[in-house]
Computed example of a mutant assay.
Amino acid sequence: MTRGEFTPSDLDSVLNVIGLSPPDPLDTFGEMWYQVFLWALFSSMLFHIIAALIAFCRLRKHTIGRWMPVAILVMGVLSPLTGGVVTSAVIAGVFRASDFVMMPFYALVWGLGQTIVVMFISFTRILATL
């Protein structure tokens, strides 16, 4: 197999999440944690990339403000790498300890949920400072 080549198992895991094939439940703590963490990381990066593009378009002529998109991108990666790791482990630990079955779609929902909660908290703190 050469670099960059997909295997059938890679495609199968993508199809499991979007519901086009029968779901294969996530059994171990590591599988659950990894899937929830990846969804939290990628959804956070997506939202922060969009925010950074908007900030860059609006602040490109500002002398100091033009560097804000860099800070936004750094927070889009740093936040899931710190808090996202811990909260994903807690979610996976609860699922594993209670013997609940985690389907790949549940991991997607938990990962997106983490990003939405972080965004909500961020926006409410900004409004409190005004």
Rank of each mutant, 00 (worst) to 15 (best):
F100Q: 14
T115D: 06
T87N: 08
G84A: 01
S98T: 15
I91D: 02
F120H: 04
A52Q: 06
L112T: 08
T115E: 03
A92W: 02
L112W: 09
F120Q: 04
M119L: 10
R125L: 05
F56L: 11
G111M: 00
S88H: 02
I121E: 07
I116S: 05
A71V: 06
I54G: 06
H62N: 14
L127E: 10
T124D: 04
L127W: 11
F95Y: 13
A55S: 12
Q114R: 07
S98D: 11
T115C: 05
V94T: 11
F105Y: 09
L53I: 14
V77M: 12
A52E: 06
G111L: 01
G113L: 00
T87K: 08
C57T: 10
A107F: 04
R96M: 04
M75V: 08
W67I: 08
L108M: 10
M75C: 12
M119G: 07
Y106P: 05
R60Y: 13
H62S: 14
A97L: 07
F105A: 12
L78Q: 07
S88T: 04
M102S: 04
I64P: 00
I116V: 12
T82N: 09
K61I: 10
F105W: 06
V101T: 13
T63L: 13
L108R: 03
A55W: 03
L108H: 06
T124L: 03
S88I: 05
Q114M: 14
F56V: 05
G65E: 05
S98Q: 11
I72S: 02
H62I: 08
G113H: 00
T63D: 13
L108Q: 06
R58T: 13
V70L: 11
M75R: 07
G93S: 01
I72R: 01
R96I: 00
M68H: 05
S79F: 12
L127S: 12
L73G: 01
Y106M: 15
V117P: 02
Y106E: 14
I54N: 09
A71H: 07
R66E: 14
P80Y: 01
I72Y: 02
L81Q: 11
L78I: 04
I121P: 11
F123E: 09
V70I: 09
L112Q: 07
V74D: 04
M68E: 14
W67N: 12
M102Y: 02
F95Q: 08
R58Y: 14
